[in-house]
Amino acid sequence: MGSGVQDRPMIELRHVYKWFGAQAVLSDVSLAVARGGRVVVCGPSGAGKSTMIRCINRLEDHQQGEIFVDGMELTADVKQIEAIRREVGMVFQQFNLFPHLTVLENLTLAPIRVRRMSRREAEDLAMLHLERVRIPEQAGKYPAQLSGGQQQRVAIARALCMKPQVMLFDEPTSALDPEMIKEVLDVMLELAQSGMTMICVTHEMGFAREMADMLVFMDRGEVIETAPPDLFFTAPRNERTRLFLGQILRR
């Protein structure tokens, strides 16, 4: 790979704004994530964390500013949006597995329909990723037959089957029972070690410290502070960051 490709950020937001009515939910958000970068976004609820990462694959549109993914700008161009979505995997808080399809079919649907893989190729790939998230034995089951933790791991495998360049996680453990959180976080840690570019919205600060190479603190639609984990947790510069960390780490 040429150094030019390496230097360009995988994801770049420049002065992004978004309003719901008169209320700004994103306000002058700028962020650059390098290829292989691992970013954790935290902040109080309503801070715009989810909205921000949902703008990166255009589940929400931004109204001002620019967003680039792998050098492609997100505009209203439908073909461009589809091209970007092929490269950006997403994992949702509520899993959003397709309940009418088996686990295997959930994993092969997009590779066959979008990537135009043959069925066998897609199934081999699906089994590979199911082994990676440690539930190959569940391939023939339907989502409702699995536990929450298993469902979320299937959702991660489903996104990985599209061979994305970037993975977005929108509070992936917030809907899980406490005993299932670890199995999902472990899978995400392994993914981080494999060099995947990741942006993760989460309240799991222990996980953030372990996985992230950069932490972003957001509040009221703004990026308040961006810092590597050791500085972020030991020496936060902003008062609001300190307050938030005090509340969340006391538990």
């Binding site: 589940l59 995997g89 949702f92 979008v114 996104a159």
Partner: peptide
């Protein structure tokens, strides 16, 4: 969430 998940997969 179903159509969002489908969109996120590039469908």
């Amino acid at each position: 969430g179903q159509s969002e998940a489908a969109a996120a997969l590039g469908l």
